[in-house]
């Protein structure tokens, strides 16, 4: 099987790899780039554990081929913290006990960050529907939703404070 040389950018760093065209972006991130933060929970786009952004758009990396990443910007959970400084969402998830086993957490954080970029003031219903494709089997979602709502509030207050 001929493999294709793919040049892409992951979390701001240029990377390249050889991909069989049947391999997904998730496979390539995990097995070729060495980033195992995105998880495979289903392989069919139903669980969201593999969420990443592709040119800023939230996608399931299991539903993107590795070869499609050519020339694109990929952002993963590994790029969310700024060095040693956690993103406010990451910090709040820990404080709120918004994770139990933690396998869905990277996907939920990436998805939530995308939501807050698009909509800094979501309602509870909007958060729940945005995250409907991120399955969590441990928490019943309660603490996740609370952590997201509270982070959004903090970020809005910070922004207002900054403007003043």
């Amino acid at each position: 099987m001929t493999r294709i040389h793919v040049n892409t950018t992951v979390n701001g760093d240029k990377v390249d790899f050889l991909a069989d065209p049947r391999e997904t972006l998730l496979d390539c991130l995990r097995d070729k780039v060495g980033m195992t933060g995105a998880k495979e929970g289903c392989g069919t786009g139903d669980c969201g554990a593999c969420s990443v952004t592709l040119d800023g758009r939230l996608v399931c990396s299991c539903l993107v081929l590795g070869v499609e990443a050519e020339g694109k910007q990929v952002e993963t959970i590994e790029g969310m913290a700024n060095g040693g400084e956690l993103h406010p969402l990451q910090q709040k998830f820990i404080e709120y006990a918004a994770l139990q086993c933690g396998i869905c957490t990277p996907g939920i954080l990436v998805a939530t960050q995308a939501l807050l970029k698009k909509n800094p003031d979501p309602t509870e219903e909007e958060v729940r529907y945005w995250l409907a494709g991120n399955l969590c089997r441990c928490t019943g979602y309660d603490k996740i939703i609370r952590a997201v709502m509270d982070t959004a509030k903090d970020l809005r207050a910070e922004k207002v404070g900054g403007d003043v």
């Binding site: 980033m35 195992t36 933060g37 995105a38 993963t76 959970i77 590994e78 969310m80 913290a81 956690l86 990451q90 910090q91 998830f93 820990i94 994770l99 933690g102 957490t105 990277p106 954080l109």
Partner: peptide
């Protein structure tokens, strides 16, 4: 183990 689980480590 919170940090490991929110950073993908």
């Amino acid at each position: 183990d919170g940090l490991d689980k929110v950073t993908g480590r």
